[in-house]
Amino acid sequence: MATTDRRTAVGTGVGFVVILVWCLLPVVWILSLSFKGVDETAAGSPQFLPKDWTLQNYKDILANPDFLDALRNSLGISLIATLLSVVFATLAAYAIARLEFKGKRVVLSIALAIAMFPVVSLVGPLFDMWTAIGLFNTWPGLIIPYMSFTLPLAIWTLSAFFREIPWEMEQAAQVDGATSWQAFRKVIVPLAAPGVFTAAILTFFFAWNEFVLAISLTTTTGSRTVPAQMSFFVGPDPFNPPYGQLATASVVVTVPIIIIVLLFQRKIVSGLTSGAVKG
């Protein structure tokens, strides 16, 4: 027994290192690349670390108006889509977790179907519709589809979460003399807030990452988001992709993700798994 336990411990230790390397190596690589100068990548620089460390890429990218516009669009669109999606999903999830009504299964089936929907199928018709009603190349033109595609995940996560809330505490508070509003605000909101917050993080990740619609439904930096902008960024020399600048832009857009993950990793894991596995 003791030897198998030790073997398990060694295996787990090795696995730990392997996971860290596998997950972080590409991130360290773009970080390293972001410090390589233009001359170095143009000449070819196959070694992992830069020969001459430089901050020039960061200076260039943070002074690049197109990138800053894209960053603003990404932040604005993702945050608005997240906020609205979470509000709608909270209402729906409350009903699904707490109320008996006809059509509950239909709602859940629709959500499931949309979670699996091939987004690219919508590119043509949405392009056509958005051009006709003037939503093409605007913020709402992206926010609306982002909301629909994040609602399923948000509804699952939240309804799973709401089922675990001890709702009878609301009545208990009322028995103790609280008004219904006080009971809701002082008892239910603090209990529900972590779930709502988790759903918001997952929704934000989706909107921040989305690419197909972002390149199809936008044409200018007025509404183009960072992933779309990056994919069209060729730099001054089309035969030599601007490795360093693309890596730098990658680092800049990954920083918010890393901060969110560092602060809320436990919540994200529980949200992801409760939404998809426990339902």
Binding site: F16, L20, M230, Y243, V253
Partner: peptide, 22 residues
């Protein structure tokens, strides 16, 4: 380990594509 594993999950796919392309 949770943090490490969530970084690829959260990273933008386009960024992952660039990282591996490079």
């Amino acid at each position: 380990i949770r943090t490490a594993i969530l970084i690829p999950y959260g990273i933008i796919t386009v960024v992952s594509a660039f990282a591996w392309q490079f």
